[in-house]
Design a protein around this nucleic acid. Structure first.
Lengths: 343, 343
DNA sequence: ATTAGCACTCGACTTAAATGAGTGCTAACG
DNA sequence: CGTTAGCACTCATTTAAGTCGAGTGCTAAT
């Protein structure tokens, strides 16, 4: 049996209707659709076929049909094709230029949540190549030195180092030159024990300071790895009865609060080399607790090899059309952002 | 009518029982309490009195009684008195020394959530006096200058400033000296327009850089004001049926995600000059959406006039005893923390 | 002052029946 | 042959009625 023209139309009508109402849709409802003038009986026959083909499901004997994961998949694929043509623009500017990165991302998450009425997430961009760009020690007061560490992609980290006795300007200068000449442009792998020992030797009595600085460098680069995730609109799930029974809601909220779980999504999105939008439907989700949801994700690029992820999570009957549109808009905004705003 | 010895005992028995079960408690249940040998009929009479006094409520004619807000208040006040004596210690160390502040606070929130099974929050410590402590410009690369700003309490902020042409070392040194000699130790109010104009004049052609730096300083100090809040265990609310109906749960989750709302709590806790634990019961809460909850909060001090807040939010029938204990423990941990760990 | 007893209330639960949306199948129709 | 009208059947949901029982208030006896 094949999916002919008419079956396709009926299938899409069923899904569309279900997306709107969240209720199983029956043959009579479809037969009333204007553009195909068929009686409910005919529709019933077709529906039986569609069920056999696995696109729709009957929750129980005397109920209408709802889309199966396969049905959603079909619908989404068709829609994505449609979408290739247009990239609409969200009306309002994402934000003013002077805002800081984290505010901006938080804002982006919120914007998506408000626009779609689903739960959303945005991860901070993460650099793929972690090399030290710049390093600076300065005297803060008699017993504290401030180390500023800048790694590729302008991730900046400060560490305060406590010292027993005050260092004079000349020593500070020497240490700065020593560190910068030897470490700049190196990745964390390249800063090995041999190099460290050599540096410490050259620094003489200030060896311990060098060690602390290098520790801080290592930590900064490492820390950059357990990335930040901004979420918004988690409470939107209560708008969809199929997600708001106690157990499910609790699990979902937990995932959003812990964020740990969301990282699985990132890995999955990142390994996919292509720069495209991904849609997970139900069981396709890499996150177990979200198998009653659909998830739409995309990568964005922040220049300098920095990449982050945005995602929207909602019920399987989400408005895929709108969601994909929103994701596209936000993605393109973020993609072009770093040119204007370098933080 | 007065609250005599026996009434007090009965009231406490009612509340205690209700805290455990979450169900209205009837006269027979109380009469079976060992230490006061009274028949259910007697209890009923007393209960009628207690209701008239406003300590307990009958949800409907033929149901048992549940505590009113006033009843809870009575119970909590009695308990707090009890608690003055002992400060128990949570068995495990809060965390290892080397963790960073935000990790630490996140950890604290989580620890409390796991311990109590309620939702929790911890705010980052905020300095009351915002004066500039230290300021440093350094050349990052040909077209970028890095400004590091340290304000009292060791809040550190970095800003990258883009410059048209590279500055030589001497100029950088001059600017650094200029800025530090004039600005160190000043609060944001003291850095007025007159001072800024004078500085710009002295800087000559580098006036625009000065301006950017000062903007960044102002922003840093301001930013410190919209403080960060860490939350944990929001999904715990699903463990209490009285909070998990859709509307309420949605509101609560929203408050926890937005965090904006939680700031009301902070203001309220802070204005209270005393360093004590506060308990809000039901309608007493400064946050409207939490009027079905109880909230327990405390301030902690992080040295240097830095203060933050910790709080636990749960159903009105929360285990006040345990909650107050936990809060006390965490508070004392945080209070003593800054001596060991200066970040 | 305390208690036993009893009538009464009312939410929660159980059961049964009615409802109605929706199906599958068959036979008739163009 | 595809389409449709008609009909018997299914089954979740709604509605109504009935039962249960925990709990109360009141009264009269101890």
């Amino acid at each position: 049996m094949e999916l002919d023209e008419r079956k396709t139309k009926i299938l899409q009508a069923i899904i569309k209707n279900y997306l709107e109402t969240g209720e199983p849709v029956g043959s009579r409802t479809i037969s009333k659709y204007t553009d195909l003038n068929l009686s409910s009986a005919t529709i019933r026959n077709e529906m039986a076929d569609l069920e056999e083909l696995g696109f729709i499901i009957q929750p129980h004997t005397s109920a209408g049909r709802i889309p199966s994961d396969k049905g959603y998949r079909f619908y989404v694929d068709a829609m994505m094709l449609e979408h290739e043509k247009e990239v609409e623009q969200l009306k309002d500017v994402l934000l003013e230029k002077e805002e800081k990165l984290d505010h901006m991302l938080k804002q982006a998450a919120k914007l998506m949540a408000v626009n779609t009425n689903y739960a959303t997430m945005v991860t901070a961009p993460r650099s793929s190549r972690n090399v030290l760009k710049f390093l600076q020690l300065s005297r803060m007061d008699a017993s504290h030195i401030l180390a500023v560490i800048v790694i590729e992609g302008n991730v900046i980290k400060n560490t305060v180092i406590e010292v027993a006795e005050s260092l004079n300007d000349e020593t500070m200068l020497k240490l700065n030159i020593l560190l910068n000449t030897h470490l700049n442009g190196l990745s964390v792998e390249e800063i090995n024990l041999g190099l460290i020992t050599a540096l410490k030797q050259q620094a003489g009595m200030y060896g311990p300071i060098i060690e602390e600085v290098i520790d801080a460098v290592a930590e900064t680069i490492k820390e950059d790895e357990d990335l930040e995730i901004y979420t918004s609109g988690a409470n939107n799930i209560f708008k969809y009865p199929e997600l708001s029974d106690n157990q499910k809601a609790s699990d979902l909220i937990n995932a959003f609060e812990e964020k740990q779980l969301l990282t699985q999504l990132i890995d999955d999105t990142n390994t996919e080399g292509k720069n495209e939008i991904k849609v997970y439907i139900g069981e396709e989700s890499p996150i177990q607790t979200m198998k009653d949801c659909s998830i739409v994700t995309a990568n964005y690029e922040f220049g300098d090899g920095m990449r982050g992820m945005i995602g929207i999570i909602g019920p399987k009957r989400m408005d895929y059309d709108k969601v994909v549109g929103t994701i596209k808009t936000i993605k393109s905004q973020l993609d072009t952002m770093y040119k204007k705003d370098e933080d």
